[in-house]
């Protein structure tokens, strides 16, 4: 395949963020978590917090292409995790390994367009970056009993010996799916789809009822 010529390709990138006249609504907007956080219980075994309106970018490229790996590190400030089921983070940037040639990058919502543009500028060759921010959201579960809620919902073995801090798996979650990352000893981040967010919000309330659910805004 060495005789294949790589021609310069221009990709049009559109800033998906509307101006300030339109309010950004996360997939759990209708649940009004801010109000529940104020009026609901303040102590319990499980704390739920939505990391709303982050910028989600999927990156697909060849993990054996050293130039592309270098370019990705330059854009993100952190090297891509090439080991299966690992993640890397620096500041507010988190990179999750999804598949041998796919990563999910989360950045602050307002920086998504900037990072996407930087990829088109820095990276050469065959690759793809897509802004999927509108399609998913992140729910953070923390507290002593957060792991029991995960155990009820997913077949994944989350014992710390099998599932250390920083590990990422994409798996079945309830009757839906989620990208689960252990962000702390007792803290899990679930990347969930917009279309399943209401179902999983109801599921998580039900699954954590016996431990006491605290909503954090």
């Amino acid at each position: 395949m060495s005789d294949v010529k790589t021609e310069a390709v221009t990709v049009s990138v559109i800033n998906q963020l509307p101006d300030a006249s339109i309010q950004g609504q996360s997939p759990l907007f209708h649940a009004d978590l801010a109000t529940i956080a104020k009026s609901g219980p303040k102590t319990g075994g499980v704390t739920l917090k939505e990391e709303a309106l982050l910028g989600h970018l999927t990156l697909r490229m060849n993990p054996e292409n050293a130039d592309q790996l270098k370019a990705a590190e330059k854009v993100l400030g952190v090297a891509l995790p090439t080991q299966p089921l690992t993640s890397a983070s620096k500041g507010d940037v988190v990179v999750r390994w999804i598949s041998p040639d796919e990563w999910l990058i989360t950045v602050p919502g307002l920086k998504a367009f900037e990072v996407e543009t930087a990829f088109q500028k820095e990276m050469k060759g065959h690759f793809q970056v897509v802004n999927v921010s509108g399609g998913q959201t992140i729910v953070k579960l923390s507290g002593k009993y957060a792991q029991y809620v995960i155990k009820k919902s997913s077949p994944i073995d989350i014992h710390p010996s099998e599932f250390p801090v920083g590990k990422v798996v994409t798996s079945v979650f309830a009757k839906s799916s989620a990208i689960i990352r252990r962000s702390g000893e007792n803290e899990f981040e679930l990347v969930i789809r917009r279309s399943f967010s209401d179902y999983l919000w109801l599921w998580l309330q039900d699954a954590s009822r016996e431990y006491g659910l605290v909503i954090e805004a």
Binding site: P84, L85, S99, P100, P155, I156, V169, S171, V172
Partner: peptide, 18 residues
């Protein structure tokens, strides 16, 4: 539990994922 090894993830996973 019926576990299947995924050569890409490098670990055994539950059958319902496959």
């Amino acid at each position: 539990m019926f576990l299947i090894y995924c050569p890409h993830c490098g670990e055994y996973r539950e059958e319902e994922e496959f």
